[in-house]
Amino acid sequence: MSEKNSNADTESVQSNTIECLNISEKRVGFFVTCLVNTMRPSVGFASITLLEQAGCNVEVPELQSCCGQPAFNSGDDEGTRQVAYQTIEQFENFDYVVLPSGSCAGMIKKNFVEVFKDDSEWLQRAQNLADKTYELLSFLVDVCNFEPENVEFEGSYTYHDSCSGYRSLGVYEQPRKMLSKVKGLDHKPLNGHSECCGFGGTFCVKYSDISNEIVAEKTENVLATEADYLLGGDMGCLMNIAGKLNREGHTEIEALHTAEVLAGLATEIVGAKNARK
């Protein structure tokens, strides 16, 4: 748990568990995120499965694009607003908005308000959206009180906590708690589990060589666990670490999004991957 957010998080957890009683009546808008949409659709389907298992009424607005981080992190506030307008319009009428990514959820939850400081109407709407936006894994546990049932997946895993999930949203216990219910799966702790992997969105292409040094350290730690699978909650980090592992010739470890494992899709995904090797 991050040092400074711990208090705030326990409070929000408590207030949320009260709401979880009638979650089935709540409409959940699912924001797919760019990387899941293009690179790993299975994470999206796994997320919907889990949300439905948790009793949510899930809808996927077709007119969605990106959370706006590339513009925001580049300092392009106007570009960010342009992207944010349509996201707010598309999602503000749901009871909850859920994203299978700590970094994209953090963008809506923490950063939208930053770019609407001088626009009271949109600031209000951005805050309203921020208040009901959640990262998937923490939503399942904190709001839905969800526990996976009868999920089996053989092997050992190590867990990389994405920086935005861990530090900005306080996601730490939730994925571990759910994964502990998966039969056949062992946890191998990762040294430097919350250390940045060097992805950082545009950072990894702008400063590719620095990013490379950082991720090389991460892969070293991952390999030292001798785990079969690397799990995490953010596709950016997972693609970065997996991409580096593959470049280094380490095909013995497979990276999976936590949702894929929890939804019981992992065996199939790994099987399909192995068939292509």
């Binding site: 899941v36 949409n37 690179m39 790993r40 659709p41 292409v205 470049r247 292509r276």
Partner: peptide, 21 residues
């Protein structure tokens, strides 16, 4: 180039999530 200079990129599925959905 910024990405593949130092690491590989996973192959996407044949269709985007939204197309499949």
């Amino acid at each position: 180039g910024g990405w593949t200079r130092n690491r590989d990129l996973i192959e996407p599925e044949s269709k985007t999530f939204m197309q499949q959905y």
